[in-house]
Computed example of a mutant assay.
Amino acid sequence: MSPRRRATAEKSRPSWFWPLAAIVVPATGWFAKIEISGEEHLPAEGPYVLAPNHYSEFDPLILAVATWRLGRAPRFMAKESLFRVPVLGDALRATGMVPVARAASAAAARQTIDQAVALVEHGRGVIVYPEGSLTRDPDMWPMRGKTGAVRLALAGDIPVIPAATWGVQQIMPRYGKLRVFPPRRRVQVLLGPAVDLSAWRGQSTPGALTAATDAVMADVSTLLGRLRDETPPAERWNPAVHGQKETGRLES
C-alpha cells in the first residue's frame, strides 16, 4: 500500500484540487498500482521543486496522484499560452499552476524570480520535468535536461527533489496508445534526497545552470537505475548531438 502522510493545509483546505482528486485518483487507480518509496524526502511543508524522469504521456498522472497521497497538492509548470485560454486559464491560476518562462530574456528572468518568490511565500511545490519533453533515449533513460527547474530553484533557494518512475510504459508506451487491460499494473515511484546545488547558489550564468542541471539529471538517472536494477548510461542522450528533432517540447 502506498504511504499516506498527514495532509498539509494546502490539501485539507477546500480547493479545486478536491473535485479533481475525486476524479483523477480513482481513475488512475484503475490503471496503476502505485508503490512509493523515499516518501520522507518530499517536504511535508514549504516549497520544493520535484524533478522526475519523463517517458510516457501518462506519467504526469502518476506523479500527481503520488504527490497527493503524500499530502501535497500537485502543481505543474504549464505553457504560458494556456493561461490565456478562457476557463482553462482560470482553473490553472486557481490551482496555483506555474507558467513556463519560455524566452531567454530579462522579462523571463524576472518571471522566474517572481515564481520562486510565490512558491516560497505560499509554501507550495511544483513538479517540473527537467527534460522538457518525453525522453528520446532509445532505452528510455533520462536525456539531457533543460535549465528551467534549477533556475526556479536557485532563484528562491528551493530544494530540488529528484524522482523516478518506472512501469508506466506498460500502461501507455512512449508515443503509444493507452492500454486499459489488464488493470492495476505495477508502477514504482522513487524519491531521492534533495540535490546538492550549494556549489551554484547565487549563480545564474549559463555554465552554472547547465552544471546544476547535470547534477539533477545524474540523481534522477541514479534513482531510475535503482528501479530498473540497471546501470544508467555514462552519457545522457542529447537530441542536438544525436540529430533528433525535438517536438512539442517545453522550453527551459
Rank of each mutant, 00 (worst) to 15 (best):
residue 33 K to W: 12
residue 101 A to M: 06
residue 57 E to H: 15
residue 26 P to E: 05
residue 62 I to T: 12
residue 77 M to S: 12
residue 65 V to P: 05
residue 52 P to V: 09
residue 38 G to R: 03
residue 4 R to N: 09
residue 15 S to R: 06
residue 80 E to L: 04
residue 43 P to S: 13
residue 42 L to W: 03
residue 7 A to R: 10
residue 20 L to Q: 10
residue 12 S to E: 07
residue 36 I to Q: 02
residue 99 P to Y: 10
residue 81 S to Y: 08
residue 71 G to F: 00
residue 21 A to E: 05
residue 71 G to P: 02
residue 54 H to L: 05
residue 16 W to I: 15
residue 17 F to R: 01
residue 83 F to G: 07
residue 91 A to P: 06
residue 80 E to N: 06
residue 70 L to E: 00
residue 97 M to Q: 15
residue 28 T to D: 00
residue 96 G to I: 14
residue 97 M to W: 02
residue 99 P to V: 13
residue 95 T to E: 11
residue 50 L to F: 01
residue 100 V to K: 02
residue 49 V to G: 06
residue 14 P to F: 02
residue 3 P to Q: 07
residue 43 P to D: 13
residue 36 I to E: 02
residue 27 A to I: 11
residue 24 V to M: 14
residue 41 H to Y: 15
residue 17 F to Y: 12
residue 43 P to Y: 09
residue 65 V to L: 10
residue 6 R to F: 12
residue 29 G to M: 05
residue 63 L to C: 11
residue 29 G to W: 00
residue 90 D to Y: 09
residue 90 D to G: 09
residue 60 P to R: 09
residue 29 G to L: 04
residue 36 I to L: 09
residue 12 S to V: 03
residue 104 A to V: 14
residue 32 A to S: 07
residue 71 G to V: 02
residue 70 L to V: 06
residue 15 S to M: 07
residue 45 E to T: 15
residue 64 A to D: 03
residue 45 E to N: 13
residue 18 W to F: 11
residue 90 D to F: 10
residue 69 R to A: 09
residue 73 A to H: 08
residue 18 W to R: 13
residue 10 E to I: 01
residue 60 P to A: 15
residue 69 R to T: 10
residue 24 V to Y: 01
residue 45 E to K: 15
residue 66 A to V: 13
residue 5 R to P: 01
residue 72 R to Q: 04
residue 11 K to E: 09
residue 8 T to D: 13
residue 29 G to A: 11
residue 37 S to H: 13
residue 43 P to R: 13
residue 24 V to Q: 07
residue 100 V to D: 05
residue 67 T to R: 03
residue 65 V to Y: 03
residue 26 P to A: 07
residue 77 M to Q: 12
residue 13 R to A: 15
residue 28 T to P: 00
residue 3 P to Y: 05
residue 32 A to K: 00
residue 85 V to E: 07
residue 41 H to A: 12
residue 78 A to S: 10
residue 91 A to S: 13
residue 65 V to N: 05
residue 23 I to Q: 06
residue 36 I to D: 02
residue 7 A to G: 10
residue 32 A to W: 00
residue 60 P to K: 10
residue 22 A to F: 01
residue 54 H to C: 05
residue 54 H to G: 03
residue 85 V to Q: 11
residue 27 A to H: 05
residue 63 L to D: 10
residue 41 H to R: 09
residue 95 T to L: 12
residue 102 R to H: 08
residue 99 P to G: 10
residue 3 P to L: 08
residue 24 V to F: 03
residue 81 S to E: 15
residue 45 E to L: 12
residue 13 R to Q: 14
residue 74 P to T: 04
residue 56 S to P: 01
residue 46 G to Y: 01
residue 71 G to A: 08
residue 39 E to R: 08
residue 78 A to V: 14
residue 16 W to V: 15
residue 33 K to A: 15
residue 17 F to W: 14
residue 28 T to E: 00
residue 95 T to C: 12
residue 39 E to C: 09
residue 28 T to F: 00
residue 56 S to W: 00
residue 54 H to D: 04
residue 49 V to C: 07
residue 75 R to M: 05
residue 10 E to G: 02
residue 8 T to H: 11
